[in-house]
Design a protein around this nucleic acid. Structure first.
Length: 422
RNA sequence: GGAGAGGUGGCUGAGUGGUUGAAAGCGCUCCCCUGCUAAGGGAGUAUGUGGUAAUCCUGCAUCGAGGGUUCGAAUCCCUCCCUCUCCGCCA
């Protein structure tokens, strides 16, 4: 949610900025809604004042006749007040709904563009293996190793789920352990959090009200499966006033993530790239606004360190304005190399939300004068399923066996290679 | 799931229809006094949102959340959420 005071004082700059997203901020509609709200609020509050005053007078009025008159008057005010409140509530609701649908403003250093084609690569890192044989994709390797099954999961669930087995299931687990250990060593506090959250939490981080169709909702309760650990972790401090000496707060959490993937029916139908359920390690920071830029860089580096240590080739991309998410002011994507697709694919998305989320969630920083909203930053560190798939593809041998990255060998009880079953 | 008790400011804790945004204590901040320390005295100490250019002034709201009754609700009624105790069930 944007600062309503800026919308009032400088609507054209906001409008200009949001054009970069192809979002039309309708100033006229806004002004109309805000003026309506203002009028109703002033009306209601002055009636309320009158009502409060006369109620006090009644309490101390001794003369029975005067008291009777005042009661009559008070009764009239009260019914006017009731009507006025109804109007006020409705105008507040309209204004609020309007505000909730406005995306965050785009940071000045974000390139302007319409779609992901206009994202710009900052750098590429790591060595792409030059395979002297025809590379297999990860699902084929998974099958050869008897570690990945997409048919059984359809039977027990539906498409876009996977069953991992044996050494691949273990590698999946090893990745989680490894990532959590590295991040906690780098100063992130580890959390275990609920996978079901209420709608307030989703509103706080920005998934609701706009993106309900991307979520799985529990039918017998007003709860949703989390689409990312960002939701429970960021909402930990909802409605809180933080002490500035406690900042930055750094959290890391591993959770499964559930996404309906509505609207992506044709995309990535094979393999583990796009699933309804996947595991992810999420990094979340609560920071002072002044530190936000540098903290985003830090967090992105922390996510990158996993890719580096796993020796996976990747690149860092800054998303253009049109591809930057609703709540974000600036986003870096980390994309890992998939040799079977001859392309890079997103494996982490590191975003600075400025005070967009904290304003919705009312997360403030204690100041001597007026409290300010803190800034939130988060990113994957990393998506586990995609990391697994990337290792299988990048580390494959001709027969389908796979070299285990050095740093994971201990986590695999000393195994250096995933070998084909006999 | 059943029975009962309860949710008040940073904390403890009064308050059962009318100057209660809220007593008192603790904590915290500032000032005074006391040649250190200890003790004492005084003042202040929530959040949000309006009117405003304004940290001055001032209105309104907030005693778990949302409704209702009433001229007036922290106090009465309803629904929901949460906490505690006992019982049942259970990874």
């Amino acid at each position: 949610m944007l600062d309503i005071n800026i919308l009032r004082s400088n609507p054209s700059s906001i409008q200009e900025n949001l054009k970069k997203r192809d979002f039309l901020f309708d100033v006229e509609v806004f002004n109309k809604l805000d003026a309506e709200r203002k009028k109703n609020q002033i009306d209601t509050e002055s009636l309320q004042e009158k009502s409060n005053k006369i109620a006090k007078e009644i309490a101390s009025e001794k003369d029975p006749d005067l008291k009777k008159n005042k009661l009559k008057e008070a009764s009239q005010i009260s019914s006017q007040l009731k009507e006025s409140k109804i109007k006020l509530d409705s105008s507040k609701l309209h204004l609020n709904n309007f505000l909730l649908e406005i995306p965050n403003i785009i940071s000045e250093d974000v390139p302007v563009g319409k779609s992901e084609n206009e994202n710009s690569v900052i750098y590429e890192k790591g060595h792409k293996n030059l395979f002297n044989f025809e590379v297999k994709d990860h699902q084929e390797i998974g099958k050869l190793l008897d570690g990945m099954n997409f048919e059984e999961s359809v039977k027990i669930s539906k498409s876009r789920f996977v069953i991992l087995k044996n050494e691949i299931a273990k590698l999946h687990r090893a990745l989680i352990q490894y990532m959590l250990n590295l991040h906690t060593k780098n100063g992130y506090e580890e959390l275990y959090v609920p996978y079901l959250v209420n709608s307030e939490s989703l509103k706080g981080t920005g998934q609701l009200p706009k993106f309900e169709e991307d979520l799985f909702k529990i039918s017998n309760d007003n709860m949703y499966l989390i689409p990312t650990a960002e939701v429970p972790v960021t909402n930990i401090h909802r409605n809180e006033i933080l002490n500035s000496e406690d900042l930055p707060i750094n959290y890391v959490a591993h959770t499964p993530c559930f996404r309906s993937e509505a609207g992506s029916y044709g995309k990535d139908t094979k393999g583990m790239i796009r699933q309804h359920q996947f595991d992810k390690i999420e990094l979340v920071k609560f920071v002072h606004p002044e530190d936000a830029e540098s903290e985003l860089e830090k967090l992105t580096l922390d996510a990158e360190s996993i890719l580096e240590n796993l020796s996976l080739p990747y690149r860092k991309v800054i998303l253009c304005s049109g591809d930057t998410g609703f709540a974000s002011t600036k986003t870096y994507d980390l994309e890992v190399w998939f040799p079977s697709q001859d392309s890079y694919r997103e494996i982490s998305s590191c975003s600075h939300f400025s005070d967009f989320q904290s304003r919705r969630m009312k997360i403030r920083i204690k100041q001597s004068k007026a409290n300010i909203f803190c800034h939130t930053i988060n990113g994957s560190g990393l998506a586990v399923g995609r990391t697994l798939a990337a290792i299988l593809e990048n580390n494959q041998n001709e027969n389908g066996s796979v070299k285990i990255p050095e740093v994971l060998i201990d986590y695999m009880d000393g195994s250096k290679e995933l070998i084909l079953p006999r």
